[in-house]
Amino acid sequence: MPEPIIKIRDLHTSYGELKVLKGITLDVYADETLVILGRSGCGKSTLLRHLIGLQKPTKGEIYIKDVDIVRASEDGREEVMKKIGMLFQGAALFNSMSVGENVALPLVEHTPLESSTISIMTRMKLDLVGLAGFENFMPSQLSGGMKKRAAMARALAMDPDILFCDEPSAGLDPIVAVGIDHLILKLKKAFKMTIVVVTHELASVFLIADRIALLHEGEVIFLGTKEEMKNSKDPRICQFLERRPDEEIIDRDKHLSALVGEGYIS
């Protein structure tokens, strides 16, 4: 077994009283594509935010390439981040800059390249995501799907070796969504990137994943390959795969009192 490139150890975190992650332990190996599945609000984005050091856990450790992200100095963390790309759930393009400037920014800031070289690289990255010729557009002039793709180009600007994607195809039409999946496949094959994707789209999960982790109420309840997942008997996994809604509410009184507030029904 090769050494994992990302190691998450017993990660706990909470927003005030609300415990969101309750002891996540997970390894990601170099060059693999790991898909994180889970219901809305189960803490997937929160997990990614911890991986890039935006949030500190209440307990637990994260190592990326053997750097302790939780306790690293600001400079140490930044050094790791330069080789990591992140696609935010809401794209998070800089609205005051054009699409081209967005993609060029990390290159301008972190490399000694000349501006002519940078503009060529910018156009190459935009071409890769199918946005050639849009470098002078402002983010506000793009559709949601185009923003996602522009953000993807920005995440790829520094040729990262790890890429995190938070719901890359949510809210996109099926054709563009498949386009993004194929882009991820291309990156995986051509650039040997380690990719961690959070998604709800089962179709894309089975297209891109090497391994799947299923998050449920702040814990990893399943980790394995596509086949293992399909063959699993765990009711929570089956529910997810078969896209069944939650069970009908049995206890009507309890449900009613939850709706109208405590103490209303005696």
């Binding site: 935010r49 890039i52 050091g53 935006l54 600001e74 963390r77 930044e78 050094e79 981040m81 330069k82 990591i84 992140m86 935010f88 759930q89 809401g90 998070a92 393009l93 800089f94 609205n95 005051s96 920014l105 990390p106 800031e109 972190h110 520094m158």
Partner: peptide, 21 residues
Amino acid sequence: AEIGTMKVAEEIDALKTMALN
């Protein structure tokens, strides 16, 4: 307003992930 809007739109987070303080 500028910094606040950037914060709300996760742009500040994006800066940090690009190793820009």
